[in-house]
Amino acid sequence: MFDHVKFGVSDYAVSKIFFLKALEPLGVAVVSEGPPTYGVELLGPKSKASLCLYQTEERPAHLHLAFTAENRQQVDAFYRAALEAGGKDNGAPGPRPQYNANYYAAFVIGPDGHNIEAVCQEPEA
């Protein structure tokens, strides 16, 4: 739905490590990087849309970022990796029938208070 999302973070090094580790199970990797004030661009293997973060002193508003997972195992792996990377639980992996019958997601709070989600909307295998 989007080409890229770019947002400021208060501690570039911590946020970069968090997002790389948390999103590694989804195949996300660095595709370009400049100085912290320019930031880093992250991209998934089958995605055309990228996530970019950069260092700023401004306190950004909280965001809700939802990343597509190919299957429920990736959602589970994202959740574990995100917690290991310092994220805080905001909803363990599981079905969310209030959204739709196949919605399976996990939520964590990232270093700047953003709600980070991995979601699979495919039927259970």
Rank of each mutant, 00 (worst) to 15 (best):
E24I: 02
L20W: 09
G27S: 03
H4V: 04
G87H: 00
V119F: 00
F107V: 12
N90Y: 08
K88G: 12
L83N: 10
A69C: 09
E124V: 05
D112L: 09
P25E: 03
A105H: 07
T56Y: 00
P36H: 13
A101P: 03
P123V: 04
A85P: 12
L43F: 00
C120K: 07
P111T: 13
G8D: 05
V31I: 15
N71I: 04
Q55Y: 00
E24D: 13
I116N: 03
F78C: 04
G94P: 09
V30D: 11
F19L: 13
P25D: 07
F18H: 02
A101Q: 14
P25H: 03
G34M: 06
A82E: 11
E33I: 01
G8C: 07
P36R: 10
G94S: 06
E117D: 09
P123I: 11
P95E: 11
V5A: 14
V5G: 00
P93Y: 04
A125W: 00
F78H: 09
K21W: 00
G91K: 01
G8R: 04
H4K: 07
L42N: 04
I116H: 01
M1K: 08
E33G: 03
S47A: 15
N102V: 11
G27P: 08
L42S: 02
G110H: 01
K6Q: 13
N100V: 01
V108W: 04
K6L: 08
D76W: 02
S15F: 06
P45Q: 06
A29S: 12
E24N: 13
R59F: 02
H62Q: 15
E70V: 00
M1Y: 01
G113C: 06
P60C: 02
Y99K: 08
G87F: 00
M1C: 01
S15V: 08
N115R: 12
G39F: 04
P123G: 06
T68H: 09
G27Y: 07
A92K: 15
V119I: 14
G87L: 08
Q55C: 01
F67V: 03
Q98W: 07
D76K: 15
R59Q: 12
P25F: 10
G86R: 10
F18K: 05
Q55A: 11
V9S: 11
D76Q: 13
E124R: 10
H64Y: 02
N90R: 02
C52E: 13
Y54M: 10
E122D: 03
F18S: 01
P35G: 06
